[in-house]
Amino acid sequence: MPASYAGLRKEACGIREFFLYSVQEGLLFGILALGVFITFRCLNFPDLTVDGSYPLGAAVFALTMYRGYGPVAGVVSALAAGALAGLFTGILHTFSRIPALLSGILTMICLYSINLRIMGRPNISLSENLGHRTIFVILRDAFPTVPEVYVRFLFLFALLVVLKFLLDAFLQTEIGLSIRATGDNETLVATQGINPDDMKLIGISLSNALVALSGAMFAQYQGFVDINMGIGMVISGLASVIVGEVLLRGKTIFVMTLQVIVGSVVYRLATAVALNWGYSIGFKPYDLKLFTGILVIVILSFPVLKEKFGKA
C-alpha cells in the first residue's frame, strides 16, 4: 500500500483536488507561520526552536492519543508543550544571556532527544485502525454527506481565520503592544517601565505554542508522526512570511497576519507545483529544502541586489 499510495493519489487527484490539498497544507503550515511571524517580525527574535517544537507538538499529541485521551486533550497538551519549549529558549536568552540564535538551536537539539523519548521510536502512526479518532476523523463522521476533502478544507480555513483574529486582537492588547514595542526598540521599552525580558518570554512561548499546534494538526492530517518532520520548518515558516510580504503591501496588524496566511498558502502551492510538474525536469522531493532555501535567499537578497544593480 505505501508503495503505490503516491501513484494512487496522483491518479485519483484532479486539478481541483490537487489545489485543495495544497491549500490545506498551506493552511496547516499557516499556523506555524503565524508563530514564526511573532518571533521574527514582532519580537525581532530569530527563533530556531521551531524545528524542535513542531515535532514536539506532534509527538505530544500522539502520546495523548495513545494514552486514550481525545484530540482536544491532545491539542491542548501540544499547545502547552510548545509554550514550555519556547519559554525554555526565552530563559536561555534572557537569564543566561545566550544569543538568540544559539538559544533556539540549543532547545531544538535538546528537543530531538525529548521527542524521541515521548514517541518511543522514530515514527509512530495515528490511525483509525488503532482506535485513534483524530479531529479529521470526527469531522468526517459528523458530516458524512460532504466529501472529506471539503470538510477538512473548511475546518482548517475556519481554524486559521479564528487564530488570525485572535492573534490580531492579542497584538493590540497592552501585552501585545508591549511585545511589538520590545521588538522595535528595547531601550524605549525599558525607559517606559516595561521589562523587555518578560515580553520576550511571553512572545516566544506564544509563538512556539502555535508552532506545536501546527505540528499536532499536521500529525492528524498525515496520520503519523516522524521524528524528522521538523527539519527546515523554521525556514519554510519564514518563507511563508516573506512571500506574503512580497505579495501584499501594508503594515497594519490585520494586513501583516493576512500576509502570513496568504504567503503560506502560495508557498505550499508553489512547492506542490514544483514537486508535481518539476518531476519532468528532474526535480525530486528531496530537492524541496534546496528550493525553499534558494527562495528565501533570493527574496532576502533582493533589496541589496536592487540597490547595487538596479540603478545601472
Binding site: 486582537a169 492579542f170 493590540q172 492588547t173 497592552e174 501585552i175 501585545g176 503592544l177 508591549s178 516595561i194
Partner: peptide, 8 residues
C-alpha cells in the same frame, strides 16, 4: 501592570 486589555 500590563494585561490582556485593549491597549488603546
Amino acid at each position: 501592570r500590563k494585561g490582556i486589555r485593549m491597549a488603546i
